[in-house]
Structure formats: structure tokens, C-alpha cells
Amino acid sequence: MTISEIQTLLNAEIICGEDKISQTVDRAFASDLMSDVLTLKSNQIMLITGLCNIQTIRTMEMADLNTVIFVRGKKVTEDMIDIARENDMIVLQTEYSMFRTAGVLWEAGIKPVF
């Protein structure tokens, strides 16, 4: 599924990575605990999280994740966007809850990591 399709399904805003909306995502992982994200063995999965701070972006950088959707209307700060851009990340933001976001994506065919 493309980032563009995900944006439509979740009524999301693209905070950065507008030039990458044709990239595709097959799998996702939802967590507010970065320690869990750091144990993932797979790369290139979309992170769904309500934890919106600079360490979310740092965790993605270390875990080789390049797409995140911040749920529950969490606002992304400029210093987060700077690091996200530096690492060619795609950052989306939706007002939907984590449960709803995961449910919509599941129904649309996005697979879990485990």
C-alpha cells in the first residue's frame, strides 16, 4: 500500500517526506514503548505510535525504520522534523487513536511484524 493511500485512509497529514508518497508499506508495528521497537529484527516497517518526542525519531534511526504515523493528534516538533529529514524519513500524523489506526490498516491488508 502506498503512503498516499495510507494518508487517505487515516485522514492523515504528511509532516515530512512529501516526495515519497508513492513508496509502499507492507507491514506495521504499533507501540508507545521505544524499548520494544529497538528489539525488532525487521526493517522497513511502519511505526504506529502515540509517543511523540525526539527519541521516537532517534529510535527509528537506530532501528532502520523510515516511516512513522503519530496517532491521537500528537504534534511533531521542529527538532524532530530536522532529524527525520536528515534521515529521509516519512512522518505522518493522524487524529485517529492507535486502535483505530491499526484497525483501519489491518483491514486494508497491512501485515503485522509478528
Binding site: 508507545d32 521505544m34 524499548s35 529497538l38 518526542n53 529510535t59
Partner: peptide, 11 residues
């Protein structure tokens, strides 16, 4: 900040 779950050293 998303840490402190007791997973750092094991990871």
C-alpha cells in the same frame, strides 16, 4: 520518553 521497561541491558 519511551524507555525504562527493563529491556536495555538484555537488548
Amino acid at each position: 520518553m519511551g524507555f525504562g521497561a527493563g529491556m536495555g541491558l538484555p537488548n
